[in-house]
Design a protein around this nucleic acid. Structure first.
Length: 270
DNA sequence: CCCGTGCCCTGGCGGC
DNA sequence: TGCCGCCAGGGCACGG
């Protein structure tokens, strides 16, 4: 489940391998992944385009090409694989980009990922990226506006998962932020809005630490073939059910909050 | 508008 | 060993 740190890791790795290469052909094997075009259009538009830069906004990857922008969301299990020219494709390689010296494939077991093509200049101002709120480390972050959003009648977990308020946190990192705040994930946001600065600070810390370690690897997710994140060793509550809390020794429990599997320490997080 | 639920989709896993 | 059903969840559609 790639969240901001995993997408950042993917972006950096992709840049090393494919920056400057030209897309010669694109094969769309699962049309529904491409939201803005038919497979024929997608190939037509992207063929001949050079990969100039790759950036990220929230959990979206943004490929700057010669004439257009390609936006990619990995959702739960999306990955990019580098395949040698003579290598066979996998049944979950849904979109194949034929580049100069390798084939780049978009691999997604559950087919939840999405791609959009946008005109240059529209990539941040139109959906889906335009709906995103602030990244926690955005220097222009509007703390008063964030605080106001926390007054909604939702749990802190639901609010932190809402990408239109803060963007970048997903299920893993929200649990970690709640633990660092010492609050139960089901605590109403309005009871915590006075701690907005602290919430942002913990979000920044968790995300930055995870980025520094190449993200977290859980189950099937790897940043690309052969590379796994090391932040999984730093998780204090997520996926730690049955283990002792690093602070107080109480056994970590799992419950359900905001429709998501949620891990917490019943003694640190009341 | 607000908020909860279900859906998309496949593979892994627990239970029998 | 094999099969069945549940679970994982980001973002969105839908409905009360």
């Amino acid at each position: 489940m790639p969240e901001l740190p995993e997408v950042e890791t993917v972006k950096e790795t992709l840049k090393k391998f494919i920056l400057g290469q030209t897309i010669h052909k694109v094969e769309v094997r699962r049309p529904k992944i491409v939201k803005t075009n038919t497979p024929e259009e997608f190939n037509e538009i992207l063929s001949g385009q050079k990969i100039i830069d790759i950036t990220r906004r929230g959990k979206f990857l943004i490929f700057e090409l010669t004439d257009v922008m390609l936006i990619s969301h990995l959702r739960m299990e999306g990955k990019y694989f580098y395949r040698k020219k003579d290598e066979e494709f996998d049944k979950h390689d849904h979109i194949i980009f034929y580049l100069d010296d390798i084939n780049l494939t978009y691999h997604d077991t559950r087919q939840f990922g999405t791609m959009h093509i946008k005109a240059k200049g529209d990539e941040l101002t139109t959906e889906p990226v335009s709906k995103l709120g602030y990244e926690p480390f955005d220097e222009n972050i509007d703390r008063d506006w964030i605080k106001k959003q926390f007054h909604k009648n939702l749990s802190i977990k639901a609010l932190l998962l809402d990408q239109t308020i803060l963007t970048g946190l997903g299920n893993i990192y929200v649990d970690e932020v709640c633990f660092r705040l010492r609050v139960h994930p089901s605590t109403p946001g309005k009871e915590l809005s006075h701690r907005t600065d602290e919430i942002i600070k913990h979000s920044v810390d968790v995300l930055n630490k995870a980025i520094a370690l190449g993200g977290t690897t859980i189950r099937s997710y790897t940043s690309h073939e052969g590379v796994t994140g090391r932040f999984q060793n730093e998780l204090l509550v997520h996926q730690q059910k049955g283990k002792e809390c690093t602070v107080c020794g109480t056994i970590i429990e799992k419950t359900r909050v905001a429709g998501r599997g949620t891990y917490f320490c019943p003694s640190c997080q009341k």
